[in-house]
Nucleic acid binder design. Structure first.
Lengths: 408, 408
DNA sequence: ACCATTACGCAAGGTCTTAACGTAAAGTCT
DNA sequence: AGACTTTACGTTAAGACCTTGCGTAATGGT
């Protein structure tokens, strides 16, 4: 279907992509001259490209605040030109969001679950997607791109889950096919950490290379290097959960994920509380997960909680330091449940990640907390939709019988 | 001087680069149709590009082993079209090599030294370069590209050394300027580990992403990710020598470099020999560095030596495992002095780098042993020379008054 | 000698970008 | 208010590049 683009068409596609990226990432509508300067293209070239994009409905014209000289028309992406769906399938929660072409979230739906059966989970995911779509007044065939995050080791190329614990038969399912039913676009499956990293890459003030730690019950890293998501030769980059470390509470060697994951934090909190039952920490621990309380108490300055956080930071930093140092990274984002850890956590990590001689590492928390991964899925879906658009793939939807770009 | 390339010229430059890369990396002369297939360009396009490159002397025509159908002309790079120089400045040794456009080494020169004065070292390097050039019958102005490796933390963009121990005032010198005197081309300065990695990237059977450990007295890593050298935002990628580890012999925390570096190996060997003076290892230790003997004895199966290697591998693997795992790398090269460590070392490392669930890491030794870094410098210089050529920069040398590519 | 096969060369045609020039629409100055 | 400055826009001709298509060349096989 998609013949390789050759000849001058390749140049045009490349230039169009640059113009589009410029208009897409800019927060405010941009003038043609600005775009020309930023992209290095001629004003003339940009003008024709913008004109075409506007004619096809991709761009919107804003006319214009006055300045010196003739006021310039400014352009931005047409928000309603298409819509995308992002999904995050977690061990206990499924979230789906619908966004428009500008990236604004129109509606979302989520569902808590304790499912261990793949088939049942599949159904829940489908239902959640439809609820989100309903909230935006859309149906499946109208979606331009669908991007899905799932826990587990993902085979991005094949659209399958390689390994996962906790959900039976999840790795046997052809997820992109199953979840893509009813959609007119291909579904894309990716690692939760990778998508979390993508979400961070859209933040203002985000450096071109950084590391993201998706940290909850499971632990995985996402790497953006020189502005691009790095997946690794086998698509297993960032899978650091299996790294062997020493559990500071038991003294036994264990997998990193099993030591700093939310489940273990919960266990440890109860151990500490049992040992010292008159602390405030002990008194707030209920039946449900204690992780949030630990960080809350630590941020309030309670000794016992701070100790837990410190030991966590110890273990995590020991594993992460070689990676950050080797890659010369100086920004790290924490996403996932632990992102609510607050300043105690970031400070503890920053202190331990300092290596003599090297520039310090800045640790930041995701501003999206629990929705970081979905937001990343939206980012990926948008990217995919625009790519399809550049190849003329989205045109057919509502420009079916129209004459093909003015035969002059 | 070099105005930004715009318009269709950019397309042409890109296509020419692809054709050239194809002909440059291929071991044997290639036919036009082959190149067209590999690059995805039309035969016609490739033909004109090749024609022009041949006219300008960059390519050489080989006529033709018969097959079915009309025999095709094949093309390869003209070896004598230009020459490049690569230099490796080590703590105790300086090497310079001269290569032709095809990458074949024409001559080399090296010098052992114990200099601690930057100025004196500078002079030695200059003399060594000239000796190498003399061996190839060339002079400085005739060189098309000059690439230099130095120990220490390098600022590639600025062409300076940031930090170094052992050579006074070395970081005060503007090395690219000082060493570039007399050359008609810009000099490029880079990290030894980065260049070692570049050298490995030219090996057959080299994966697109891998790690190189330049391991001698100093220790640094070079990363090639998705086929491209990764330098990091501050150009400090791979600087893992400062990583904190525990010295298994003293039990004290120390920098990785200080624990597994050749100097420490030497110390440890003497300790072990003193403790157990009747071993074969003890008997072969002379006044000079003992590292080589340790590995030799270990490869011969001697217990005491194997223990040293095992502990070395322990420490190194603990530092490297997170990096390899996080980046999903499954090939690692060892370059530098330790590359003579033989199979004991690679086996010991491979065993320890295995992480449950992940694909194994294959550890290989550089086939160039001590000359790996220079070879990498040559690779970098070639790249630089071809880049200049693509921008028309090398033309002026011997096509001064010639009419500019046939005004038809 | 004829055919199949592969390589090569040439010319027409189309797409894309550039450069140049004139026009349009504001604000500013006198 | 009118002239001027400043910035933006639109059009057109020209140039560079790539592709397509076809005819020719050179070999081996039958």
């Amino acid at each position: 279907m998609n013949d390789p683009i050759v000849g001058t068409a390749r140049l045009k596609r490349y230039n169009t992509a640059r113009v589009l990226d410029e208009l897409r990432t800019g927060a405010v509508p941009q003038r043609i001259v600005e775009v020309a300067e930023h992209t290095g293209l001629t004003r003339s070239t940009v003008a024709t490209i913008v004109e075409e994009l506007e004619a096809d409905g991709w761009l919107q014209r804003h006319d214009p605040a006055g300045s010196l000289g003739r006021p310039a028309a400014r352009f931005s992406v047409t928000p309603g030109r298409f819509h995308v769906v992002g999904v995050d399938i977690g061990l206990h929660r499924v979230v789906a969001e619908v966004a428009d072409a500008s990236g604004a979230v129109l509606s979302s739906a989520d569902a808590q679950h304790e499912l261990h059966d793949g088939r049942a989970l599949l159904q829940l995911v489908g239902a959640t997607i439809d609820r989100a779509l309903g909230g935006a007044g859309l149906t499946r065939p109208e979606v331009a791109a669908l991007s899905i995050a799932s826990v587990g080791m993902i085979d991005h190329a094949e659209g399958r889950v390689r390994v996962i614990r906790g959900i039976d038969a999840w790795s046997d399912l052809d997820l992109t096919r199953e979840l893509g039913r009813g959609f007119a676009c291909p579904a894309e499956l990716d690692n939760d950490a990778n998508l979390a990293a993508l979400a961070m890459s859209r933040l203002d003030d985000c450096p071109p290379s950084f590391l993201t730690v998706q940290w909850g019950e499971r632990l995985g890293a996402g790497l953006v290097l020189d502005g691009r998501l790095y997946r690794g030769p086998l698509g297993a980059a960032g899978e650091i959960g299996a790294l062997r470390v020493v559990d500071p509470w038991s003294g036994e060697p264990a997998a990193l994920e099993a030591v700093v994951g939310a489940e273990r934090i919960d266990e440890v909190a109860r151990l500490v509380a049992a040992r010292d039952p008159f602390t405030r920490l002990a008194s707030v621990l209920g039946a449900e997960a204690a992780t949030a309380q630990v960080f809350e108490r630590a941020n309030d300055g309670e000794r016992a909680a701070i100790e837990i956080v410190d030991l966590l930071a110890d273990v995590a930093a020991r594993a992460l330091a070689p990676i950050l140092l080797a890659l010369d990274l100086h920004r790290m984002y924490i996403t996932g449940g632990i992102a609510r850890g607050g300043e105690v956590l970031t400070a503890a990590l920053e202190r331990r990640l300092a290596v003599g001689g090297a520039a310090p590492v800045e640790v930041r928390l995701s501003p999206f907390t629990e929705n970081t991964v979905v937001r990343g899925a939206i980012t990926a879906a948008l990217q995919s939709a625009w790519d399809t658009a550049l190849d003329g793939g989205l045109d057919r939807r509502d420009r079916a019988a129209e004459p093909r770009r003015a035969a002059r």
